[in-house]
Simulated scan of single mutants.
Amino acid sequence: MPAVTLRLAQGTPCWMSLLTDDLEGARAFYGRLFGWEYSPGPARIGPYVRARADGSPVAGLGVSPGAPGHPVGWTTYFAADHADEASQRVRECGGTVAVGPVQAGGAGRLAIAADVSGAVFGLWQGEEHLGWERTGEPGTPAATSLLTPDPSGARAFYRAVLACEVRDRTAGTEACELLAAGRPVAGIRRTYGRAPARWRACFTVADPDRTAALAVAAGGTAVSAPGRDPGARATGHDPAGERVVHLADPRGGLFSVVGPT
């Protein structure tokens, strides 16, 4: 996919950041899996680096504010025309704003929030830094989706907060997708059991099974598919028919990799 050089339409996923209590370990782990190199990023809320694939920024890695012991996890950010206004809509719609809005130097303005089911996400008002510059290629972000026990509540929440359209993905199911500027940009689907609501961090790779083997060899683990029984297989296929493997890094950060069948 061509590099992103223009501000993305509001509601478009534009960045993913990992907060961890072992930044150096995360750099080594994800660098081995995806071939990432790193450059300094804004340190407004702590040490932070930008991961680069073939020279293009694609994700961020930072230190959890409460480290050590703070939960490790990936956060998906959505483009916002005005982070402060979107943050206010989060509160009005029953969500919470945990961080910000704060200015990340000249890069942009951000907020970290949670929806009505507790799924954490970010808002990014890009200035010098608009977001990831490549997607859909090995080592870059893939299509993202929200896994939630309350799809109907989620669709109403994100429609209002991100001012985007929502449409059913398949007739007769609860799966739906968010549209920004008329094109689908993210999915929403139901989870079952006790799986908490979360936005899935997913990355494109050439060979999901090889990447999974590398992850396990580097101290990560293969985990069950989100919303399924703990004994369920860690591999399967996403709604687009691509092969997907669900993994956790050595500190417990959940992510998935997707590639050809």
Rank of each mutant, 00 (worst) to 15 (best):
P208S: 02
A9S: 14
A28C: 08
D229G: 10
T20P: 12
C176M: 06
C202F: 00
D229N: 10
G55D: 02
A171P: 01
P149T: 05
D84C: 04
W124V: 08
L110R: 12
G153T: 02
L247D: 03
T135K: 00
T75K: 05
P57G: 06
L18T: 12
V72A: 15
G62T: 09
L8D: 08
A43E: 15
A51K: 01
T76W: 01
G31S: 02
G69F: 05
P101T: 08
A119E: 09
A171R: 11
V258F: 03
W15G: 06
D209F: 07
V216T: 13
V4L: 07
R183C: 05
G236H: 04
E24W: 09
S256T: 03
L8H: 01
V216P: 00
A114S: 15
R200K: 08
G241I: 06
A51Y: 00
G139D: 00
A206E: 10
E242T: 02
T211H: 00
A248H: 06
A80W: 06
P2N: 04
R169W: 13
P184F: 07
E137G: 00
R190G: 05
G94W: 12
G220K: 08
F157N: 07
P239T: 10
D81Y: 01
T148D: 05
A53T: 09
P196H: 06
L61V: 13
R194V: 12
